Amino acid sequence: MDPRVREHARIVAEHSASLQPGDNVVIDAHPVAEDLVTALFETCADVGANPLAVSQRTGTRFRRAYLRNHDGEFELPSHEMALFEEMDVYIAIRGDANVTETADIDPVTSREYDTARKPLLDERLSKRWVLTQYPAGANAQLAEMSTEGYENFVWDAVNKDWDEQGEFQAQMVELLDPAEEVRIVSGDTTDVTMSVAGNTTINDTGKHNLPGGEVFTAPVPDSVEGEVLFDKPLYHQGREVTGVHLVFEDGEVVEHSAEKNEEVLTEVLNADDGARRLGELGIGMNRDIDRFTYNMLFDEKMGDTVHMAVGRAYEANVGEDNEQNESAVHVDMIVDMSEDSFIEVDGDVVQRDGTFRFEDGF
């Protein structure tokens, strides 16, 4: 086993999940990630935790078979809920044998499936949870990289000094956390403002998403105004969606379009009322993620980018007196901020063309 796999498992167990003796741990992974699952089982044994491996949400053939053959309304699976209620820690590992395994699932079916299972999402998010990536060959292909090159890329982004990364990101948290209003401008295609007043900015150092490398907050749901062109592709439900353009009025998406697979975007926005509002504003700050790989777990952390998610806002971001945007979906999309772009916080420019105010060359 590559020693970097065991280092990855150690960071998940010690830094991200803070495993404790007696913890009931559910590890959700495609079989292609067996090495990392094995290393995590070793770590659980060392700690005295109780691991269980499942393959439920990772694009496997049996999930496709179920959705392709299902007829009627989806029900909430009570036995799966019982498992989540009993667990203390949920570890999800991305890694695919075929990244387009679910590409022929009707978007309406996928939406209805996700909506029916929203209580499971709520239960998972109420526990200690971690989402990470195993560098599988199919994901390397999607990133247009060799397997070895993708392995180096993944583990360089994951196996790093998270205390040092957190200190760098804390400088942006100090600017954003007390802010009232944020404006994002990129070229002639993106100019959007939103209130973040009273909401909390989180310094992502790999506690939930691994790799970490962003700071993120929640917009006040009815405050978003303007338009955004997400110029990096979105890979959702096994399909590439490009050129996503959203227009917001009073916080709600009133116009939308995409150059490719617009129907996927439409079904995301039609999931429920909250899906047409923003649940997250994030700023990428992990400089070890230096290329786009069609993997939002990495791409949203990439330096010189911001991302916005339609749908669910994370409870930890929402201030005590503010409304949490509720939705069955949370779909991130990315804006390239490397050229002809700036981030403005309460009227002051804090990033210009990808360089932060606290970096050399601003």
Rank of each mutant, 00 (worst) to 15 (best):
Q20K: 03
I184A: 10
R287V: 15
N24G: 12
E42M: 13
T355K: 01
V182T: 15
A9D: 10
A33P: 02
R117A: 07
L265I: 06
W129R: 12
E344K: 11
G311H: 03
V26M: 10
D71V: 06
V247M: 04
V318Y: 01
H79P: 08
D204N: 10
F292L: 12
P51S: 12
W162I: 11
D104S: 03
T147E: 11
A179Y: 12
R276G: 08
D156T: 08
E344G: 14
D28F: 01
H79N: 14
V268W: 05
E326K: 12
V89R: 00
N152H: 04
E359G: 05
F230G: 15
P211M: 11
R287S: 09
L265W: 00
W155E: 10
A143F: 00
D273W: 01
D348I: 06
F362G: 09
G282A: 10
D299R: 00
H70I: 08
G22V: 11
G137S: 08
G354C: 14
G361L: 14
A45L: 06
V268F: 10
T58P: 07
A275E: 02
D353C: 13
K127S: 07
G213I: 04
I91T: 03
L176M: 02
G206Q: 02
Y90D: 05
H208P: 12
P219K: 08
A116E: 05
A9V: 01
F298Q: 06
D46M: 07
E101Q: 07
I91S: 04
E344H: 06
G282K: 06
V182D: 04
L210T: 01
E86K: 04
N139W: 00
R10N: 09
M87F: 05
K118H: 15
P77E: 11
D96W: 04
M333L: 06
V331S: 02
D360H: 02
L269P: 05
L175P: 05
R111W: 06
F292T: 13
P219W: 02
G48C: 07
S338M: 03
G226E: 13
A170W: 07
V54G: 09
N270T: 14
L210I: 01
N209A: 13
F62P: 06
K301E: 08
G311L: 08
V349F: 00
H245F: 05
R124F: 01
P135Q: 07
